[in-house]
Amino acid sequence: MSDTPRSQPQPRRPEPDFPQQDQEHPGWTGPMDPPPDHGEDSYRGSGRLQDRKAVLTGGDSGIGRAVALAFAREGADVLFTHLPEEGEEAAETARLVRDAGRTAVAVPCDIREEEQCRRLVERAVREWGRIDILVNNAAYQMAQPDGIAAITTEQFDRVVRTNLYGMFWLSKMALPHIPKGGSIINTTSVQAYRPSPDLLDYAMTKGAIATFTQGLAQMVAADGVRVNAVAPGPVWTPLIPATLPDTTEFGKQSPLGRPAQPAEMAPAYVFLASSEASYITAEIVNATGGSPIP
C-alpha cells in the first residue's frame, strides 16, 4: 500500500475570537487582524478563462479582489470598479492581475448612478469590444442593532441602489455585448435565506438578487448567456470592521466555526464563468460554511 496521502492538508484558517476592530466605511485591508487571504500565495490557475474579458464590480478588496486575482491567473483580463476613495486598494488588485500577466483596468465608479454604469460598460466595450463575464459583486450594508426604527431612508436608499439598481443597470447594459457562451454572476448571500435582524435591509436585497438571477437566467438562456449567483456565508473582508459593531466572534456561528477567507469564495466564481459550467444556469452556489439552506 502506498504511503502517499490521498489529499493535501488544508491550510489552517484563522478562527475567532478576533481582536475588536473598527473602521470607517468602506474599510481597508491593511489594518485588518488577521489579514484577509485573497489567494495571493495559494491560487493556481489552469487556463480555464483564457483570453476572456471580465467586468467585475467591487474589485478593490475582499471577495472582489480574490475573484480578480483568480480570473487573471486563469487567463482573463479584468476591468473592475472601486469607489474613488479606494484607489490605494484598487492599485493592489491591479498589481495582482498584472503580475499574472493579464490586463487590469481599475475604474472609479459609483454604481448607484445609472450614467456611471453606462460609462463603465462603454469603457469595457472600448477596451475589448465585448464582455465575456459580468460579475455583480459590489454591495453596501450597515448593521442596525436597534432594528428597523434605526434604518434611515438615506441608508435604505443606499443599500437598495448599490445592491439592486447597479446590478440591474449593468446587466441590462452589458447583455448586448455578452456573446453566446458568456455569463453573468451575481453575489447574493446566506442572508437571503437566514436574515440577521440587524441587517434587515441588506438581507432583503440579497433575497432579491437570488430572484433576479433565476428570472434573468430563464430570459436569456435562448441567447446562450448563463446567469448564476454565489451565496457566501460570513467572509472576512474590510466590510466587516466597517459595518458591524462587534468583530470578535464574526463567523463563529457557522458550523465550521469561522468566517471564510475571500480566497475560499473565488473558485466558485471561476467555475461558474468557465466552460465546465456550460449546462449550469439559474443556480445559486451556496458557500455558507455549512449553514443549511432551506
Rank of each mutant, 00 (worst) to 15 (best):
Q8V: 12
Q10D: 12
R13H: 13
P16E: 12
P16R: 12
P19L: 06
P19H: 07
Q21I: 09
H25N: 08
H25Y: 15
G27P: 04
W28F: 14
T29H: 09
P34R: 12
P34Y: 10
P35M: 07
P35Q: 08
P36F: 06
E40C: 10
S42W: 11
S42Q: 11
G45D: 14
R48F: 07
R48T: 07
Q50H: 15
Q50M: 15
R52T: 07
K53Q: 13
V55G: 05
L56E: 06
D60I: 09
S61P: 13
G62H: 15
R65G: 13
A68Y: 14
A68W: 13
A68S: 14
A70I: 12
A70S: 15
A70L: 11
R73Y: 11
E74G: 07
P84Y: 15
E85L: 15
E86A: 15
G87Q: 15
E88R: 15
A91P: 02
T103Q: 10
A104L: 03
V107W: 02
D110T: 08
R112G: 01
E114L: 08
C117M: 08
C117A: 11
C117K: 06
R119P: 01
E122G: 12
E122R: 14
R123S: 10
A124F: 02
W128S: 08
W128A: 10
D132K: 01
L134S: 02
V135H: 03
Q144Y: 04
I148C: 09
A150Q: 06
A150M: 01
E154Y: 08
Q155V: 02
F156T: 12
D157H: 14
R158L: 01
V160H: 12
N163H: 09
G166L: 04
G166M: 01
A174Q: 07
H177G: 01
I178K: 11
G181Y: 00
G182Q: 06
T188S: 06
T188K: 00
S189M: 03
A192W: 00
P195Q: 03
L199W: 03
L199S: 04
I209W: 00
A210S: 10
T211K: 06
T211L: 04
F212L: 08
L216D: 03
Q218F: 04
A222E: 13
V227N: 01
V227R: 00
V227W: 00
V230T: 11
P232G: 13
P234Q: 12
V235A: 09
W236T: 04
P241M: 13
D246K: 10
D246C: 02
D246N: 08
E249P: 05
G251S: 00
Q253T: 12
P259S: 08
A260F: 08
Q261R: 07
A263E: 11
E264H: 04
M265I: 14
A268H: 04
A268V: 01
Y269A: 07
Y269Q: 06
F271M: 10
Y279W: 10
I280D: 06
T281C: 02
I284E: 05
G290K: 00
P292Y: 06
P292R: 12
